[in-house]
Design a binder for these strands. Structure first.
Lengths: 215, 215
DNA sequence: GTCTATAAACCGATAGAC
DNA sequence: GTCTATCGGTTTATAGAC
């Protein structure tokens, strides 16, 4: 792993735990075992450039992770359930520390650092587009409602992360996931050619009970 | 307005824009027109005590605000719509700065400051209980699913704030609100004595069309 | 490319005069 | 209760030797 990659990786890790303003460059360099001068050699733009790079890398990482979960699920509804349930497991296993650090930084910079705000906006926009594609693949009617529900999945996940981390409980993630499952069934049953019962399959599997508990 | 109240109010304002680690006590004191010595006179616990007080005050304020919106709405579904739509208006009017600053601080302190984390947890728990009461008043079946959907309203709102602030667009708030409306109709139609069509009224009004647009 | 030293500004917190 | 000066430590960033 190159010096540069090590800096980006430890920056992502530290910004995730302490936030953007909560971590100094000296701390990042020390943790990565790199002198501060080398940091400015690779990132002449200083803290901002390093954070932008870390954000973009983590943003892509999170996207691939979630897309993988959905694509290996038999249908959209189980994809949503698996996504929120496994997020709850990972979060609890890390002592409620590792959720989505991009949202922490996004809130910190939203009104204070325009270049970094734009970086987070690009990441979120890509996530929305990816989620929209997943909903469309599940058979939702028009592009507009697919995007609308794709956004709801992202916002639900991010909001549940906040409460689950603060409360140190998986309950917000489970509850939000179940609410999105109910919404997905409603959205998908409204598509042309769908019966008015709860549906939601796109490529396999029998209709699930859907009312299910928190396992 | 007393010196003490002025400190708490400006602290809430500054922490909202720059985050907890992003604002110094000197800055708070200067903005409030108070010498730093007086700040430590009223808050011997320093930054942490001041932030805790500001969090509790703002937490109660947000709760009263949202409860007022829901209680003056004819039913749960229009309460949700009004809540998300007016939040989008307020946010846009402030240049996408004033959403919910408690979540910014909650993420910052979640893994770094246990006393403040507990303060945010208490606030979120009260919000959940308030939201649960609103859902129960709308006629949802059991206490468990009422709490589950109450949580989803809070997490949806908080998550939508993150994306709307980052993207500087009302779209995430509108999309999340519509998704919660669909989920509410599904949850409420499952209650005993309800037809299996989409419902959602609790005290007034005819059944709405429910599929409606973004106005 | 690597590393050290340092500048200039800021941080939270305290002491002590008034 | 108000206000100032200051301590010790941190921040971002740069200069310059190697």
């Amino acid at each position: 792993m190159s010096t540069r990659d090590r800096l980006v990786a430890t920056a992502a890790q530290l910004y995730g735990r302490f936030g953007y303003t909560g971590v100094g460059l000296k701390q990042v360099a020390a943790e990565a075992g790199v002198p501060i001068g080398s940091l400015y050699h690779f990132f002449p733009g200083g803290k901002e450039e390093l954070a932008a790079e870390a954000l973009r890398l983590s943003g892509q990482g999170y996207q691939l992770l979630v897309e993988g979960v959905f694509e290996s699920a038999p249908d959209l509804v189980t994809g949503i359930r698996t996504c929120f349930d496994s997020a709850a497991e990972v979060l609890a296993a890390s002592g409620y520390a590792d959720a989505c650090w991009i949202e922490t930084v996004a809130l910190e910079v939203a009104s204070t650092n325009e270049p970094l705000r734009l970086v987070t906006a690009e990441i979120f926009e890509r996530w929305i587009e990816a989620a929209t594609r997943l909903v469309e693949a599940a058979g939702a009617v028009d592009a507009e409602s697919a995007r609308r529900f794709g956004i709801a999945i992202i916002t639900g996940l991010e909001g549940a992360f906040v409460l689950s981390r603060s409360l140190r409980s998986p309950e917000p993630l489970h509850a939000t996931g179940e609410s999105l499952v109910a919404a997905a069934e409603a959205v998908l049953s409204a598509r042309p050619g769908a019966g008015q019962s709860r549906a939601g399959q796109s490529r396999a599997g029998q209709p699930r009970a859907g009312k299910g508990g928190r396992r």
